[in-house]
Write a protein that binds this DNA or RNA. Sequence first.
RNA 1: GCGGGUGUAGCUUAAUGGUAAAGCACCUGCCUUCCAAGCAGGCUACGAGGGUUCGAUUCCCUUCACCCGCUCCA
Length: 499
Amino acid sequence: MTDAPVKDMKDIVALCKRRGFIFQASEIYGGINGFWDYGPLGTELKNNLRDAWWRDMVLCPPIGPDGQPVEIVGLDSAIIQNPQVWVASGHVGGFSDPMVDCKETKKRYRADHLNVIKASDAQWVAVNEGNEQEEVEKRFKKLNIKYDASYATVSLVDVDLKDYSKIIGPDAKEAGSLTEPKAFNLLFETKIGAVASEDSTAYLRGETAQGIFINYKNILDSARVKVPFGIAQVGKAFRNEVNPRNFIFRSREFEQMEMEWFCPPEDAPQWFEFWKEERRKWWKSVGLSDNDVIFREHDADELVFYSKGTFDIEYRFPFTAPGYGELEGIAYRGNYDLTQHQEHSGTKMEYIDPMDNKNRYIPHVIEPAAGLTRGVLAILCEAYTVDPSRPSGVYMNFTPAMAPKKAAILPLTAKGEHPEIATKLYLELRQHFAIDLDIKQNIGKRYARQDEIGTPYCFTIDDETVENGTVTVRERNTMAQERIHLDKVLAFLQEKING
RNA sequence: GCGGGUGUAGCUUAAUGGUAAAGCACCUGCCUUCCAAGCAGGCUACGAGGGUUCGAUUCCCUUCACCCGCUCCA
């Protein structure tokens, strides 16, 4: 725990806009709630994070617990699939939580989390599903209604609408304050074909994971993979959030980095531990500090019914502090998804062990599912550093690998040979890295600008460069300078960025 | 979805029932040999839609967006 100054979300959002990281979507039309556009620097940053994930998951994944390299292949599935996919996954129907509001107390409840106890024909009492007997009795006492354990109890979702007037809400005093349940279907609907008709409804994917499950068979048959193996995918997902909040943290369109790890059921616990450990290491490697990241095992009552364990990696965002917000969930999903798709599609999802041809099973799945856009937000928040001692007053402390610009080339003056040498160096370096060339205005302004966008190194060309071919390297965090020869600049950057 | 707040330029703030001022930033030029310096010039705003009014950025209504709290987050 450190006493670092509290970072103000307002300032971070303002810098993101000012410098071209993230803009409100459709801003010139007054915006649109829950959507964001990534500007030039935000796009670079997001790509850097995405590429690091792809490299560390697909191209160069970790060594497994048995000392062998693990095998993970990539996928890029369609955003729109046959609507049956989402029926099988449970996103259509099962997960569209009906909500009721209480007009008296202004509270909102999930209808499937409320029970109704029929004390008499005219007096029905709604209580939270999880309430103990004791709490229920207390509630009845408060309402001055006699309690009897033999009263019929039903879930609110099974109560007829015309009986709602008899129900006293869980926190209300009077009956009839609950509104009729409203279904919140979190999936975006769209119509396929130029002419919309009743049966042309399809859905934008609510997660990238289902694209992986429905391609599991294809990949098994084509990619020469053997269980255990993984399939990884990065891409957009869409959820019709009731209430988008907190900049890009909860938005209706976002980007995920998901990997499904298929393994024999008996090995699943071992792999679960393995991926928990690997993923926590990874988030550190992209620059998130130990002080602001926690790892949280879900309690049994938080788990969805098919999950045999979920482990969250969470970051202390300025808007959640002192609490945390989720970056990645590592879930042990059993064989729920493959079984669902087997049942709904009629396609066998069994894996036959090629070693003995006898051992048949539906693989179990460990799912490390990370939010790419949430990762970007965490890195932005982490990097934002207030420093009154420098002209910009603030700098972005990105790791060199995450920084949208790796270096800036700055001729000290716009005269003589300075710009010429600078341009030559720029043309060489940009073949390897994202590089800025900035000739205009005085050097102080240019350093300040680079600080605000988090460029780790500035190379400055001056008269001495003309004389002996050396440039100054200015390091972002310390503002310290050293001279190196022009010939060494590329090697210097390669060493700093690639390690 | 509920309650509260906010909305004038990229940012921070003015003024006004008669269409808006400044500082910083940004751009151009000059000048500058290392941290937003100086000089000259330039661009940019009343969130949107209605209503009242001769006239609305100002008053009223609606709406949109953002912030805080509640709710929600499979």
